[in-house]
């Protein structure tokens, strides 16, 4: 089923779980649609006026409808209890420890994704709204000791493969929605809130970050890029960026 649905390639550890629910629910939809459709066509042909000139006052006998409704309810309970709720729970409750994860901040704004890495000390430098400007969209205070080794990028998210990534998502202005189609990740970035989202990339590759929530006139091109590296490549990239961004 999932091949027929034409979903993007699955590049994260939990993507299979999402795709499985997607396939199951579409099977349920297909069975119901075909079942209804067959009955519908049968009824239209069998009970057209010329074939059945006198209608039956009582109509269909039996408890067909109750069986159908019971069946739909049962299928939905199974989908909920054994698939959708557990998968969702793993997404929002079972966060990996920060120690073994790559932790980044992503701050959305019209119409870009600002990415903030804590650097080798593992601590994010202080940010302040007063410092926000064209050259410093995050308002990072470079005088803060914790900020010395921080790495910031615009519209470029780099992560290593097979290691959990935790993204602390926020927005400077409007509601945006941080979407990594291949990671099966989508999370609204809501001003005033910090939303954590996590995933474990399993496929190296280069893809695009999309914005899924209407955020203004250039919403359609609020596009970023993300790269899933091997661990070595990722570390090399981080070192190179840190060196380039370190103050003189």
């Amino acid at each position: 089923m999932i091949e027929w649905l034409g979903v993007p390639v699955a590049g994260a550890a939990h993507a299979g779980d999402v795709d499985q629910v997607m396939a199951l629910v579409h099977w349920l939809m297909l069975v119901l649609l075909v079942g209804w459709g067959v009955f519908f066509v049968y009824a239209l042909v069998r009970f057209r006026r010329t074939a059945h000139p006198v209608a039956s006052y009582d109509g269909l006998r039996g408890r067909w409808s109750a069986w159908l409704e019971g069946g739909v309810l049962l299928a939905e309970v199974v989908l909920l209890a054994f698939f959708s709720i557990p998968v969702w729970s793993a997404r929002v409750d079972a966060f990996p420890s920060e120690r073994e994860s790559v932790v980044v901040r992503v701050v959305a704004e019209q119409f870009a994704w600002n990415v903030h890495y804590p650097g080798s000390d593992g601590r994010f430098g202080r940010t302040d709204l007063v410092l926000v400007g064209p050259a410093n969209p995050l308002g990072l205070d470079r005088t803060d000791p914790a900020a010395q080794d921080d790495v910031t990028t615009i519209n470029q998210l780099h992560l290593p493969v097979n290691r959990p990534a935790i993204v602390y998502l926020s927005s400077k202005d409007m509601v945006h929605s941080f979407t990594l189609p291949q990671m099966r990740i989508k999370q609204d970035a809501i001003p005033g809130l910090i939303q954590p989202v996590w995933f474990t990339p399993t496929e190296p590759g280069e893809w695009e970050i999309a914005c899924s929530q209407l955020c203004g006139l250039a919403h359609y091109r609020m596009r970023g890029f993300y790269t899933i590296h091997t661990q070595d490549e990722y570390e090399a990239w981080l070192v190179e960026e840190a060196a380039a961004q370190a103050g003189p």
Partner: peptide, 26 residues
């Protein structure tokens, strides 16, 4: 959300099943 689909299914299948035994004028 899943529960609310049930009364919708009830109404839709009742309308479908109403066709059964009818003398349908198109």
């Amino acid at each position: 959300t899943m529960i609310i689909s049930i009364p919708s299914v009830v109404i839709l299948s009742s309308l479908m099943l109403s066709l059964h035994g009818g003398s349908i004028r198109f």
